[in-house]
């Protein structure tokens, strides 16, 4: 199965390349590294990696912390804390990413302004905030599922050896849940990388925005968007490998007797 993926990719590339020599539909010259303009275009397109990666990592980092902050009150005995968890998750999960991005980038500054605050949101931070908040509802649910998957007996045993609720979470429940949480969290990171493409809409110079800009000047959408897709493919495959490796590493230590 694994090798199948690569064979498919190679086949796909080969078929594209063969088109370029034949009919006149393809114009790979726009990204031909042997020509001066092609090389410049490639450099410009690949230059978006940094922004896409930075944006994704910061957003994922915030989302992982925010998700936990949202998930934990869901286990409280306090009705209001539990309600906060449910309302946050249901509400944030219901907002499509693009409208939320518009709201944060164009709407939020209006609120700040009317409050007399001098806070400006540039495209980068607008995208980070939106991706992080939008994703945090999902990470919160991942935490919840992981924590709930630890048997009730573990909680009871923690209680009978005198641990407080917080200590039980800190020393017993969470360390065990973490192993089950990591793979879906990593999966969520892939999702963030892909969704970061929306940041192009508010003018952030990441992979997709740069592709759009070249398309506008060169009128070669097929070639450039093909390269764009491959750029995301490379990123996601790299993350996939890292996740596999992580899962294997954790799996070898897995020692659940209950």
């Amino acid at each position: 199965m694994k090798s199948f993926k690569y064979i498919f990719v190679l086949f796909f590339l080969a078929s594209l390349a063969s088109c370029s020599s034949g009919s006149g539909n393809w114009g790979w010259y726009v990204i031909d590294p042997t020509t001066k303009s092609g090389l410049a275009n490639i450099k410009f397109l690949i230059g978006g990696f940094g922004a896409t990666i930075l944006l994704s990592i910061i957003a994922a980092f915030i989302s992982i912390i925010l998700g936990l902050v949202v998930a934990l009150p869901g286990f409280s005995n306090n009705f209001f804390l539990r309600s906060f968890n449910r309302i946050y998750v249901e509400f944030i999960r219901a907002i499509p990413l693009l409208p939320m991005l518009f709201w944060v980038f164009y709407g939020l500054p209006v609120i700040f302004q009317s409050l007399g605050l001098k806070i400006e949101i540039d495209a980068f931070w607008g995208a980070v905030i939106t991706l992080a908040i939008s994703d945090s509802a999902f990470t919160a649910e991942i935490y919840r599922a992981g924590i709930q998957s630890i048997s009730r007996g573990q909680r009871e045993a923690a209680q009978t050896i005198g641990l407080s609720q917080f200590q039980a979470m800190r020393y017993i429940i969470f360390p065990q849940a973490l192993r089950r949480i990591l793979p879906p969290l990593a999966n969520q990171f892939i999702y963030i990388v892909k969704m970061s493409a929306f940041a192009s809409v508010i003018g952030m110079q990441e992979l997709t925005r740069r592709a759009n800009e070249i398309v506008v000047t060169e009128y070669r959408p097929l070639e450039i968007y093909t390269l764009l897709i491959l750029e995301y493919l490379v990123l996601v495959l790299l993350i996939s490998f890292a996740v596999r490796w992580l899962e294997k590493k954790l799996g070898s230590n897995e020692s659940n007797s209950n």
């Binding site: 007996g153 573990q154 050896i161 641990l163 020393y171 017993i172 065990q176």
Partner: peptide
């Protein structure tokens, strides 16, 4: 008041001695 369960409920991510010392140290 301490309790022993039917399903043991040991903490699988900790060694035996860590299972035993966690309560006395933390609680």
């Amino acid at each position: 008041v301490s309790m022993v369960f039917q399903q043991f409920n040991l903490f699988p991510h900790l060694t035996v001695i860590e299972n035993l010392t966690l309560g006395p140290i933390k609680a």
